[in-house]
């Protein structure tokens, strides 16, 4: 690949790197894992870049590649704690973790989000990024009705965690 392409890619990614950091934040829970995933997403972005035609926004395209890498291609390293087996597992949040202050609430929320499965995390991520259901459904490949239903379920789940 030529130098010009390399240059334009690195420059764009440098500018929009927060998107990748945010994906890493939801999918990993320590510094090393964060860096691992960041690295893998960067490589996948670079590999897909020649096909990026600019008909989508660079950032939208990044969401897609980033999430796909996190939920599909990425092999979690041993350092990360496995959080995908959510079904049937109660949240392991003790009563003392819960506090009325907003900060405590946020801490608990992040903890809870980390325990959602990979697909649920993707939905939460796109929701936090202010994406509408159309975009969420296109990114994941499900219908927008199903995206909405699933999102409501996640909200209920989170509410239950915060108000036990």
């Amino acid at each position: 690949m030529n130098k010009e392409l390399e240059h334009s890619f690195v420059e764009l990614l440098e500018k929009h790197q927060n998107i990748v950091h945010k994906v890493c934040r939801l999918y990993t829970n320590n510094y090393d894992a964060h860096n691992d995933l960041f690295q893998e997403i960067t490589i996948q972005l670079w590999r897909a870049y020649p096909k990026f035609r600019g008909d989508a926004k660079f950032s939208t395209w990044m969401y897609r590649v980033g999430l796909n890498t996190a939920i599909t291609l990425y092999r979690k390293s041993k350092r990360t704690i496995n959080t995908q087996d959510y079904a049937g597992v109660e949240f392991k949040i003790k009563a003392e973790d819960y506090d009325d202050t907003e900060e405590q609430q946020l801490k608990t929320l992040y903890k809870a989000v980390h325990q959602l499965n990979d697909i649920e995390k993707a939905l939460v991520f796109l929701y936090l990024e202010d994406k509408d259901y159309k975009e969420i459904s296109e990114t994941l490949g499900i219908s927008s009705v199903n995206a909405r239903v699933k999102m409501n379920r996640i909200k209920t789940k989170l509410k239950a965690i915060l108000n036990p």
Partner: peptide, 17 residues
């Protein structure tokens, strides 16, 4: 991350499934 950090990353190898 700086331009150089990212540039170094794209030279690395993927470990995808």
């Amino acid at each position: 991350l700086s331009y150089n950090d990212i540039y170094k990353m794209i030279l690395k190898k993927s470990s995808s499934i």
